[in-house]
Nucleic acid binder design. Structure first.
Lengths: 150, 150
DNA sequence: TCGTTAATGGTAATGGTTGTCATTTACATT
DNA sequence: AATGTAAATGACAACCATTACCATTAACGA
């Protein structure tokens, strides 16, 4: 169906970033103030259930959504996440090497476990340069802890 | 340091599953009733920050934790998640093929974006056989929606 | 135009997670 | 063993993203 849903899809088609439900709500609200947050959540749920939108979680407490279909949509979503500042980099280089392996594994998993696999997610977690230097200065006790616990 | 933390680590070392904070709290509480939920969260946060525990999110609203070090700990965490019932399968077959590719990509990403990458996550999302048949019976309106929206 | 059904919005409730703060524990020093 | 200091703890409150509820509104076919 349609009305506010088109607005939501429009917003998602424009911005290629990983928007949270609130991000989308704010932007949709600008051009159509009548739309409420509840509708945004409901529409996103619907879009995810029909495989049109992917829902990600990068550990910052809010879900992120990304359009899977339409022009200028990337098919594969491989992310580099900084666990320090929650910065997300969506890398597209190097992907080609992964795809064939991942797809062949997907086919095997699908057969073995009797799953209909709709999409996959590859996420590298670590610390960006900035957060890494911040960590080093002033956290001798962490390595201490690690020694004691290990 | 130590005390309740050892108990928490002990629980995590015993159970190879993906425990939520509350799961851990309940089990720790059985053998050491003095330990509170807050301590469990704080300890998990510490363990994650020093790279001893990985934190996952499978979309069911609660975080999952898994020990990364010690005996009988798997180094790689590749999951198959049913978006219908949140069932998680940790597959270990097929992994060998992925590792070399993923590690070479990790090295390239680390250099290009100046990240210290601590671990990676591969997640295939889909529907298990049970949820898949449930979806088919009684959700003609979903494919209808999909048609309209597409 | 009218009627049925689905969609919507505001608000309240839910629930996992984090903050606060007084108390307790651990550990190094006498 | 006693003591002092700083970190760790636990109970409870606060937070905040998400979901439930319900009365109202919009959409679409007749």
């Amino acid at each position: 169906m349609t009305t506010g849903r088109e607005a939501i899809l429009g917003i998602m088609a424009q911005s290629a970033e990983h928007l949270s439900a609130e991000d989308i709500y704010i932007r949709v609200h600008e051009q159509k103030p009548s739309i409420g947050l509840t509708t945004v959540y409901r529409t996103l749920e619907l879009l995810v259930s029909i495989g049109m939108v992917a829902k990600f979680d990068f550990g910052d407490g809010r879900a992120r959504f990304e359009l899977l279909q339409g022009p200028k949509c990337v098919k594969y979503h491989h992310h580099l996440v900084c666990t320090g500042c929650s910065r997300i980099i969506e890398y597209s280089d190097f992907i080609a090497e992964e795809i064939s392996i991942l797809e062949s594994i997907q086919a095997k998993l699908s057969k073995k476990y009797d799953f209909v696999i709709t999409n996959h997610l590859v996420q590298y977690c670590g610390l960006c340069a900035k957060c890494c230097t911040e960590k080093k200065s002033g956290t001798e006790q962490l390595t201490e802890d690690q020694r004691v616990l290990a």
